[in-house]
Design a binder for these strands. Structure first.
Lengths: 252, 252
DNA sequence: AAGTGGTCTAGACCACCGA
DNA sequence: CGGTGGTCTAGACCACTTA
């Protein structure tokens, strides 16, 4: 092939990749230092670093000042990734919606709830039961139970406008950051109480979407249990081939 | 004094980012040349390039030799991202499964099907109707209709082992690459024919997962329509805050 | 204290693009 | 052709980790 000529650093990338893949540098081991690679390949440090950077970009190595360069994976597999411009896109409401709060109460998780929320038994929560409406419509799109840490109680005072999202309000008013969202989707038969609110037959098919909003240290900040009636909502995700960045096994 | 340090290139990144965000360099316009940035900021070209590379990494600019550096976005795009190690993870079967092919037929899309598949009327497809079983179980996990381009007909000859995935076989035997997957999830009432196969009551709640597998030029290579019975399957996605590391914003 | 990767300078030549 | 970003050299000092 070699359309045109290979940059010098590319041959270095190739060589190191082969060496890693062959097991010469096992995962977890140290790569030769940059200085040593300079000598071994007879190139300047800049060239070594360019190659090293490429390998780090595709997740094969991790470079750390003072420590050295360690091999973090044996092969670079292209990954499929999906991305959101903002957390709000997770909700995927094509039009604006408003949130109606039906009830707010302090509860402690019983066995069934603790299982769903993946929390301790008797963990205290503030529960909001809400309906979300497409703006201008009186037929709700979904029913949502939102569970908040007790420290966020009072958030309902800020929900005036009704067009925002709860987690947005939490980030805004309590200066916490949501770093991670676990989303879990399944089918369910809509239970009678919710069915009545959504205006569908009890037991009719529904989409159940659970979302755990986590902060630093994967601490659960809020959990939402959404129920959508059939045909009222679809959830789309676009996966693209690329090289997603690695978080992987850095410490921890 | 910022926390930790302030690499020179970082202040350049910040300055250029602000300039782009403020509209000083609109999307599509050319950034000053590297030489000019060197002079304007009084730094070496290496430093300018380091900053430039960071901006390119987060998708704000595109650099092209001979052409210059153009602004490609006003704000750094994706905040939350999810990634898969491989396409197979999209299926999220925690244990191994086997695929049973019920029927293979050539069809042409009628109006209803063309709508679901987002294809032209009368587009020819090869349809496989399949069931997927957890290994060792006789109760199917899901029913799937797979629509393949006619050129992939014959793929069923390769499905012997039954533990693979159709798209994996396509990639393997026809040397095409799946570059993109559009996934679309909703709730549905399971139709009688499928309900019988899954062993559930007709009309009972099901999870409907449509996946469009696209190749180069977003050409649809295969489409799968999956139906999962209630409680037999949940689909999890983990979204993480990505490359928007604005921590060191350091005011200014 | 020695050694690592991180940052930075001041040069240089190249392939590619548009005029 | 002149100018762009891409590559490369040969130095240098730094913050950090490890011992």
């Amino acid at each position: 092939m070699a359309r045109g000529s290979n940059p010098l650093y590319q041959s270095l990338v190739d060589a190191l990749r082969r060496a890693i893949e062959s097991g010469e540098y096992p995962v977890g081991s140290l790569l030769p230092t940059e200085k040593e690679l300079c000598e071994r390949f007879g190139v300047s440090r800049h060239t070594v670093r360019e190659a090293s950077r490429r390998l780090a970009d595709i997740g094969l190595i991790v470079r750390r000042a003072g420590l050295g360069t360690t091999v973090s994976a044996r092969t670079a597999s292209p990954r499929f990734t999906a991305s959101l411009g903002s957390l709000t896109e997770l909700l995927q409401f094509t039009q604006s919606t408003r949130l109606e709060i039906l009830a707010i109460e302090r509860i402690k998780a019983d066995a069934a709830l603790a299982d769903v929320l993946r929390c301790r038994l008797r963990q205290p929560w503030v529960r909001l039961r809400t309906l979300r409406y497409p703006s201008g419509s009186s037929r709700p799109l979904s029913h949502t139970s939102i569970f908040l840490l007790p420290e966020f109680e009072g958030i309902e005072r800020h929900v005036k406008a009704g067009t925002q999202t709860i987690f947005g309000l939490i980030e805004e008013h309590y200066s916490v950051r949501i770093l991670e969202v676990l989303q879990d989707i399944g089918a369910c038969a809509i239970e009678p109480a919710v069915a009545a609110l959504l205006g569908v037959r009890s037991g009719s098919p529904g989409l159940s979407v659970h979302r755990h909003y986590l902060g630093v240290g994967s601490k659960p900040l809020a959990i939402s249990l959404n129920t959508f009636a059939e045909n009222r909502f679809r959830l789309s995700t676009r996966w693209r081939l690329g090289w997603g960045q690695d978080l992987g096994d850095a410490a921890d």
